[in-house]
């Protein structure tokens, strides 16, 4: 963390940049401060120890982590294809797989129904042949979160791959390594910080997922009610409980991000 001061440069931030920047900070931080200020600190203990909160928090952490795992397994190879293959139609493919980034998550939930629901294209077959129904299960939560969050991972890993020096891969190839070996032994270590950054983004997005989850997985305590769903429903009856739940989610996400930042992200930035 050595700080280098460049004395040659003009000190201070230009006013046209400073004012909007300060406004941006206020805009992003004030709502969070509001949560902390309005929190019913006296009720915090009983709320936190209630089994419903623990259940929702556990489900959120487990499903967001599973969604990140699934996104890593499927998303890193996809990112490689987008960054390295020279096949035609790559830009179309990239546009297609990033659609979930801009799609309203509720629409994503309905789309998942149409494919994986009991009446869906694939889901009907699953239901009849294997007696497996996906909606309203924890699996559905993971699928909904993966659908929404994986593009974040794909985009950042693809960016890392493009920025990585391809000459290392060329060198490995000239030394006789095949493309799979090159990928495992050269490319992966090279872009590991980018993968880590993408995984953190993906995890954070999955943790906050609401629309696709409540649509496709429904809302039932213990199986599909994640923290964002619990917050939304608590807000309708007991705003104080909703504030406590939001605080818990806020603390958990900030703690996780700080932890990972120390471990990985600083390396990614360097």
């Amino acid at each position: 963390m050595g700080t280098v001061r460049r004395r040659g440069r003009e000190p201070g931030v230009p006013v046209p940049l400073l004012v909007p920047a300060v406004l941006a900070v206020a805009f992003l931080v004030l709502p969070l401060a509001g949560l902390v200020i309005r929190a019913p600190w006296g009720e915090l203990g009983p709320q936190l120890t209630s089994p419903a909160v623990g259940q929702a928090l556990r489900l959120s952490l487990v499903s967001a982590t599973a969604a990140t795992g699934l996104s890593l397994v499927l998303g890193v190879p996809l990112a490689w294809v987008l960054a390295r293959s020279r096949a035609r139609g790559r830009s179309v493919l990239r546009a297609l797989v990033t659609v979930p980034l801009v799609l309203p998550p509720v629409v994503g939930g309905v789309a998942l129904f149409l494919v994986l629901g009991r009446q869906g294209i694939v889901g009907r077959w699953l239901d009849q042949a294997l007696d497996v129904t996906v909606p309203f299960t924890t699996t559905a939560v993971v699928i909904a979160e993966t659908f929404v969050a994986m593009p974040f991972l794909v985009i950042s890993v693809e960016g890392a791959l493009r920025a990585a020096d391809a000459r290392f891969e060329d060198a490995a190839a000239t030394l006789g390594a095949d493309r799979w070996t090159t990928f495992r032994r050269v490319t992966l270590p090279l872009v590991a910080p980018g993968i880590a950054a993408g995984a953190v983004l993906c995890w954070a997005r999955a943790l906050g997922e609401f629309g696709a989850t409540i649509t496709f997985a429904g809302n039932f305590p213990g199986t599909t009610q994640t923290m964002p769903l619990a917050v939304y429903l608590a807000l309708q009856q007991d705003p104080d409980a909703a504030i406590v739940l939001s605080l818990v989610l806020l603390v958990v996400s900030v703690a996780t991000l700080l932890l990972l930042r120390d471990r990985w992200l600083t390396r990614a930035v360097r």
Binding site: V110, F113, G117, R118, Q119, P135, F136, I214, T215, A217, G218, N219, F220, P221, T224, Q225, Y232, L233
Partner: peptide, 18 residues
Amino acid sequence: DTLEEDVRAALTKVELGE
């Protein structure tokens, strides 16, 4: 299996046959 956030959300799931 699910506690829906409003009545129309519950209805939609019937309409979809889910």
